[in-house]
Nucleic acid binder design. Sequence first.
DNA 1: AAGTAAAGATACTGTTTGGTATGTTTTTAG
DNA 2: CTAAAAACATACCAAACAGTATCTTTACTT
Lengths: 195, 195
Amino acid sequence: MKKAEATRQTILQKGFDLIYTKGYQTTSIEDILSTTQVTKGAFYYHFRNKEEMGLAIINELMKPTLQTSFVDLQKEENPLKGIYNLMKHLLLENDFLKVEYGCPASNFTQEMTPWNTHFSKALNEIIQTWIQVMTDALNSGIEKGFVSKETNTKQVTIFVISGYWGIRNLGRLEDNTTVYTTYLNGLNNYLHSLV
Amino acid sequence: MKKAEATRQTILQKGFDLIYTKGYQTTSIEDILSTTQVTKGAFYYHFRNKEEMGLAIINELMKPTLQTSFVDLQKEENPLKGIYNLMKHLLLENDFLKVEYGCPASNFTQEMTPWNTHFSKALNEIIQTWIQVMTDALNSGIEKGFVSKETNTKQVTIFVISGYWGIRNLGRLEDNTTVYTTYLNGLNNYLHSLV
DNA sequence: AAGTAAAGATACTGTTTGGTATGTTTTTAG
DNA sequence: CTAAAAACATACCAAACAGTATCTTTACTT
């Protein structure tokens, strides 16, 4: 990796870390600079402003990362199992995502949506892809007989993703993984009702 | 109402409006002052600082408002119907809550949790009350035969509330009530699986 | 009506912060 | 090797903002 590209990645990575743990607005550019070896000149060489960095974090860091989690869903034969395992993985086993910090995409959405349309648009693209992948998985699950034919796959997808975002929010408040296991049990029961 | 109390309420009300639509951090005290007839002197007479105002908004405005929505849940005989109607009301019929702005409590939580424990605590109290009320309703629903005896009421509550918070988040992104109706249908199916 | 405390108005301050101007070093192309 | 462009460094600026100091008006009590 070229050196210039390395500093760019440093900024994005550290920027993501700080924003994930503290929020976008409470993370100042100075914060990023002081916790790295990057100077202001370098920062503004790579990004026109703070917003451009934020968008780069979404598009170049978060998007690809989430993309990989879709793979787990796609390689599982039974989508109901796939969905449950994905959620379990995201909530309990992924040591990149922490309870107390919630879901990066969800956090970002909540904080930025009211006043920044660019962010909303970028985030919406991510979530729409997720919805698409899950719906497709459920549809093929119907064909393979894993899911009841009467299932409205789009509806189930929306329902499941809502639950995920919500529980992440709740998890932050309580700062405790027991709500996660409780949620997962609830999800499990729900998914079984779709067979 | 005394005049002093009136200005205090003006601040809280306008503060809530702005925070609900724009977020806490993007709402400056100057914003509140310029959209009301209140001056800085008056503001700082009533509140020691911005945080104290935020907490007052949670405790004196949001808490009581949410309390009233619980009543709907408690007066319904069948808790499953009660839950569905409550959600439907909150999502589609309450013209105080807007799609594009989401759920005030959820928004606040997301924005403040990472850096302000006072806010988290106040918000957690609200949500814990909500959980309690819903669980109680479901428990009495079991006794009355509306809900299956095998139901884990706490689990169902967590599952339902997560869904609500999540869909509000999703609704903001898409800025469209169709996700709400989709969600409500999903919720309806889920609740029927508990009979 | 007068005196006192509550309530409100105005001007100001210190700091944070995003962003710029300008200069220096490093890399790359020819 | 050298010139030019890319990459980085430092000092500075203007705006926004939370909060304070001080002064004036309003409301209440006796």
